[in-house]
Structure formats: C-alpha cells, structure tokens
Design a protein around this nucleic acid. Structure first.
Lengths: 197, 197
DNA sequence: ACCATTTCTTAACATAAATCAATTACCAAC
DNA sequence: GTTGGTAATTGATTTATGTTAAGAAATGGT
C-alpha cells in the first residue's frame, strides 16, 4: 500500500529504493468508504492524508446549511485541515470521501522526521506548498471576477477528469454558484457549441 | 535596514544575534516609492519581498480592465509572484507600492542557503506557508458564499489597520465587489449602528 | 427488476449586486 | 485660495444569479 507513496517520492527526488522504503517505514495506510466522514469541525487530529487512490474533499457548512467545497483531493494530492493538523487548533472543515479512497496517513512532523534519511525532503515540501498557494491564488482571482460560465470553463480545462468523477452539484459548490445556475451554464454552452457546428 | 528582518527571525526562532547577522549577511534592502510598479505580468524575477515598512499589493487586470487584488502585504509579510520567483515562469501578477515601502529582497533559495547557519529555518518556512494556505482557504470560503456585507465585516475584523490605510476601492477589489456596492454596504452598516444606539 | 433516493433540469420569480451616470468630497500642487 | 484629479457617494436601471418549486433522469440497494 505504501508503494504508491514511495513512487510519488521517487518521481520528484533522487532516491534509492532503500531510502524510499526506510523513509516510509513508519507510515500507515487506511481505506475510507464512499460517503464516510473523516473529519468534522471541532475535531483535533494531527494527520494529513496523501491519496493513493480515490477522491476526498474538504468543505464547510454555513449558517444557512450550504456546503462550500474548499478542495478536491484525487490521487497524489494531500488533504488536511491545517488548523487541526498543523496548528493544533480545532478543525474548521469537514473532510469526507467522494469515492472509496485509500490514503497514506502522514503525521504533521513526518517530513522533519525523515530529513536525515531524505535530506531534500523539506525543500520538496516547500516547493509543493508554494505550488498549492499558486493554484489557490488563481482560484481566488477567478472567484473575484469571473462569471459562472468562466469559472466552469476554467474548471473543466484545469481538472478534466474531476469533471467526470464529481457530481455537478459539488462542482457548483466548488465554483461558488448554485447547481441550478451551473445547469443553465451548461445548457448555454451546449447551445453555443451546437450553433457553431 | 536588515535589523527588522533579523528581529522577525529571532521572534520565531531560538537564534543568537551572531546567527541572525550571519544568516542575513548576503541580503539587501530596497525602497519603493508610493505608486511604483515593482513587477508586471510577463516579468521573470526570482525575488521575494519581505516588508520592513510600508505596504505592497499584488493584483491582476482582466480583459475588461478591472483590477483584482490578490494580496495586501504590510509590515512583516512576504509578497511575491510565485510563478516567477519560485517556478521560473513568466509572472501573472502586478506588484506595486500602496505606500512608500522598504523591503528585504529574499532570493528564491535564501532559506536553503542558510540552513547550515539556522537549521530550523526550513521548518519555519514550512509553517509560514501552511499558515498562508490556511488564510487563503478562509478567504476562498468567504468568496464562495458570503454577501458583500459579510465580506466587508470579515475584512475589517481581520485587518483593522489595513482598513484605515487602504483606499476603499482597493478593499472593494480585494473583496470582489464594486466600489459602489461597498459604499452602499458601509452606508447600511452606519445606519444599522445608528438605529441600535 | 423494482422502488427509493439523489441528482439534474427547467421555468417563473425575486434579489443582490453590477452598471451607468451624475454629484459631492477630498486631496495635493501650484 | 484656486484648480485638477482621484475617490467616494448616491440614484436609476439592468443583469446575473439565487430562490422556489416541480418534474425528469439517473443511481443504488434489495
């Protein structure tokens, strides 16, 4: 079960098989079944989840009972509530499983702990975090100005395979529009394409 | 000029004065005057800016000519275009100075370079990045569901002193609403408070 | 194969916010 | 002071999106 994560590490670091095995020797995997709630607001847990297979999401529920999807996490992504997993504060998010999902449980201090086995690991971690920030800034930029249609087009371009795996109402929630609006957008787009062809 | 940055480091790490001086010995500061444009889309520069004093912002301009403010960076914050400064790709952002601002120019590989002087520096960097992500997620959550009024109230609570230093139309741009809307929101809020008192 | 549940679509209507346009307030420079 | 330019306010109007509600389509469990 850890082979996937080892492969992931080897794909971005010069790493021998032995190093990869040793570095991950203290890790465990876990399987969540579809629909399972993994974390709820108020929880305190220091785990981050690396996705071997499947699909998780993090989201909030506001006072009106509406869900807002913060992140989708498919294969090779990491998901966590940082309030809880990094800063030891009560979680603000839900995390649940959109599909049956196998994760590697990565404790908060994993990267520090293996830095003597894999010296470049902290730099890799930093690079990955910068990359996350970069993508979140693009998303913020989109949310600041784009119409529902622009948001949707951007989404399917950026995450074509998520578009197929995730129910539409969740995509709507990720984009900050209602499912009804997204449905209309799709209708319009289909119409436009029809007219063009 | 580097004392401010050294103090910043010492405030979050066990660090002797000598270490702080040695670690920052290769750094330089720079002053930007109010209104000066520091980075434009397409630029390639590997600098990150730590703010000693003053206030910078990063923003985009869309096809309609509208500005979208991605980030404000007051004292002790770091600002950069990651596309350019971390990933060597052309910048997507503008960065300019809202006030006269003194920065420490922090090259991309600064933290790695001083890790032998300050061994905990990479962990600190990681913690700071997680913190950024956490705040960006809160902002995304806000943009996904909140009304103009909720966004504004959240902003003044989170950044009371920015509220005073930044022109309203920039706050509007940061919140993803028009200046006109923000003005109306403020009018309503003033009215509500008046009725209460 | 069937039924129950969830998801998606469609339409009529309501509303928050954008747009357009004009006025006022606020400055910095001269 | 007067001027010119930027910023903020206000009002009238439009528009995109939300809301409500209903029915159709798809999905999943037994």
């Amino acid at each position: 079960m850890l082979e996937h994560f080892q492969l992931y590490l080897k794909s971005r670091l010069q790493l021998t098989d032995e190093q990869a095995v040793e570095a991950t020797s203290c890790l465990h995997t876990k399987v969540f079944k579809k629909g399972q709630v993994i974390l709820s607001p108020g929880d305190l847990r220091s785990d981050n989840y690396f996705i071997n297979s499947g699909l998780l999401r993090s989201f909030t529920i506001d006072e009106k009972g509406k869900e807002h999807i913060i992140q989708f996490a498919p294969e090779n992504w990491v998901i966590s509530d940082r309030d809880s997993s990094i800063f030891n504060e009560p979680s603000q998010l839900f995390i649940d499983a959109i599909e049956q999902t196998e994760v590697v449980i990565v404790p908060k201090d994993f990267f520090s702990a293996i830095k003597h086995i894999v010296p470049q690991i902290l730099e890799l971690n930093i690079l990955m975090l910068h990359n996350s920030i970069r993508f979140m800034q693009k998303r913020i930029n989109m949310l600041l100005g784009a119409t529902a249609e622009e948001r949707y087009l951007d989404f399917i371009k950026l995450y074509p395979n998520l578009t197929l795996r995730v129910p539409q109402w969740m995509i709507a929630s990720y984009l900050g529009v209602t499912p009804e609006s997204l449905s209309r957008v799709r209708k319009d787009l289909a119409h436009k394409h029809f007219k063009k062809a």
